[in-house]
Design a binder for these strands. Sequence first.
DNA 1: CCAATGTAGTAAAACGTTTTACCATTTTAA
DNA 2: TTAAAATGGTAAAACGTTTTACTACATTGG
Lengths: 343, 343
Amino acid sequence: MKQKRPSIKDIAKALNVSITTISFVLNGKGEERKISKEVIKKIEDYAEEINYRPNQIAQSLRTGKSKILVFMVEDIGNPFFAKIARIIEEIAYQKGYKVLFCSTENNDKRSRELITLFHERQVDGFIVIPSPGIQKDIENLIKSDVPVVLGDRYFKGSPMNHVVIDNYGASKKGTQHLIDNGFKNIAFISIDTKQMQMLDRARGYRDAVDEAGLSNQVLELSFDDIRKQKGKDSVKNLLTQKENIDAVFFSTNYLTQTALEIIKDIDPKLIYNLGILTFDDNDFFKINTPSISAVAQPLQEMGEELMRIMFKLLKKTKDKETPLMQTVLEATLTPRDSSKRNT
Amino acid sequence: MKQKRPSIKDIAKALNVSITTISFVLNGKGEERKISKEVIKKIEDYAEEINYRPNQIAQSLRTGKSKILVFMVEDIGNPFFAKIARIIEEIAYQKGYKVLFCSTENNDKRSRELITLFHERQVDGFIVIPSPGIQKDIENLIKSDVPVVLGDRYFKGSPMNHVVIDNYGASKKGTQHLIDNGFKNIAFISIDTKQMQMLDRARGYRDAVDEAGLSNQVLELSFDDIRKQKGKDSVKNLLTQKENIDAVFFSTNYLTQTALEIIKDIDPKLIYNLGILTFDDNDFFKINTPSISAVAQPLQEMGEELMRIMFKLLKKTKDKETPLMQTVLEATLTPRDSSKRNT
DNA sequence: CCAATGTAGTAAAACGTTTTACCATTTTAA
DNA sequence: TTAAAATGGTAAAACGTTTTACTACATTGG
């Protein structure tokens, strides 16, 4: 039945060699520790033969390293995060790390609990899409010498490693695209939050319409209201009361989805007469009728860059300080039918 | 700086009590082991005061339990799986378990590697959406006494715990829905696999058209071709060569997405003249024009049921055999515009 | 010839728990 | 009165590694 996995001790017994020697050899320190070629070979061969695998848990207990990373996102069920998760997973596994995913619901309390939880469990590193109020907690985490990389957002005044996109630029470019296509009354629908990425996007929008001499119209919904009637009503109001609005720019993916529902709900034809542009692309925007124009974040690059930084941090030797690593990527505008005038 | 977390030993020193006693008390065995009320209180209070948290890794090493579950899916970036992941995550965390997600790409080799990997890491349980050829591997896993629950699919001839939907019935009901709406030449587009869920769906389709005296038309694509030109061409052929096809039923979500692209590509109007029904619902099907009818799997229930069974298995005492637990859930047909005739 | 250095390893502590087996006392029962 | 049982604990082994500090012997240099 369930036979025990071989341990170093078993090898030691079988080969009549000390545990220490085996550990050195298996960790590639054989040469360095002046173990003879024959002994090294003998150990390696036998380990191979019995398919020896070190017990990670014992290793972790001894070394304090778990070879586990954690990726904290708002909601792993959201395709935007799920896609990045997939990329991160892939890279991590290649390097012998596992990834724990968890959803914060953009909730500070929950985020804090999760951070504490994983810190206690001694995960080796945190890749975090932070909820708005956990700046201090992240700072503390970093102080306690745990590798942390932020994604998608950053905190003002805290010098932390991060990978973000040029939100201001992307938002401005997107708004400009709508302006160029002849829209005159562009509304910006966003989330009621003080998070930098959203502020930057709002700023990009505002500057673009200002420069074009157009008026701005910003609607901010609270994160919790989006899926509720309250949020839907606000959007509905914006689109029906102020009849002059001819285009909408959504600041993030989960807004778009509900908004499209509402637009369809108000009037199935409305969508053809309204300019629509959204942050974050989605496989379905391409096949929607009309196809939805999007400002697409470079998911692959973001994932790669997050991991590149993470591995730099993980390799860091105790003493040497690593420099701050902050990457700003460019988003790409993917114009489709929804941002054409009169389609 | 980085101060050490308190261990049992620290408590022992501070309170002048043995490590053993503390362990008993903190594991709630104080009463049972006849530790006096005062000592229990003293220990509990002090542990609380210094915010003692047991080192999970040490616990794992000693007990062989890691409090980690693994959820193996085809692709965590696919919303269908990501959504279930979210539900599982939630339930697991409530019970003090963490979840590792991983993507198998429906590839047997990769699945095997992952199973070995996690088995070695002594995760406490596996929730698996299995790739087609890993029946033996799963059997072995179960033999070695690890809790395993399959989701979405099962293996013929292997009595394992699983949670699936009534694929045959759902498929038949879906096909019947198309027939009822007046479609005469319904094609079924599926994946070229011997996996039970797909066979069942194909069978449901075939029986429904047979009983209605209609002819069947099945197109099977290989998993790898879907996104490639080859797959696209096959679909295109089916829809253009045989002009008599008036409706299509897709057997799984990732087909639908590409297919919709192709349909749009062939002729933007085509989608209005073609009956469309798909397995697996998606937030965007609702807002698509026309909205896409779907056979929706009950994700929430599936997640809950998977976890219910998993916890039963985890609680199982060494000796007692647990009975086979197999749950079959009903899918719900969500008729929308795409399955109406002449819309 | 003797001290220093090199070679080829090994013993044992440590990581932080859980758990088995034990030990004094005290109480109970016959 | 005395053996058995209950009370209130504790010592120490064990989980499987890594790593520090050692050892015994051989070689070298002066």
